[in-house]
């Protein structure tokens, strides 16, 4: 870590922490106000987890060095597909991680 990026990490911690606290405190402190606004936003907010998680996950499995690496023998893609199946069947985080890492390491070190 260079000194500059170390400073930036502290910035992320402090600002990210303050922002997260503000989200949590928002309506507990604004009690009684804007409740109808948030009721209208509720269906939209419900899609945020699926959208942001998918956007975070998909490139990790498919993209390598900023180009499509979706070739057979790509350990990330194979591990991602295997983990997807395990996650669907088991709905268990630990099982998903174990399966994904097992395939990832098997292809990387043995393949």
């Amino acid at each position: 870590m260079t000194p500059a990026s170390e400073w930036l990490i502290w910035l992320v911690i402090v600002v990210g922490g303050l922002a997260t606290f503000a989200l949590r405190a928002s309506f507990i402190f604004l009690f009684g106000q804007f409740d109808d606004v948030i009721a209208r936003l509720e269906p939209v907010l419900g899609f945020v987890p699926a959208a942001v998680l998918a956007a975070l996950v998909a490139p990790s499995f498919v993209v390598q060095d900023a180009s499509l690496g979706a070739t057979l023998g790509n350990e990330r893609l194979l591990a991602g597909v295997g983990a997807l199946v395990v996650a669907w069947v088991s709905e268990n985080m630990l099982a998903t991680i174990v399966a994904g890492m097992a395939i990832f390491w098997a292809v990387r070190f043995l393949g």
Binding site: L53, V57, F61, G80, A83, A87, T96
Partner: peptide
């Protein structure tokens, strides 16, 4: 690589 797998486990259900 554990991170995307963790997200995947949260996402899939």
């Amino acid at each position: 690589f554990v991170i995307p797998l963790t997200f995947l486990a949260i996402l899939v259900p």
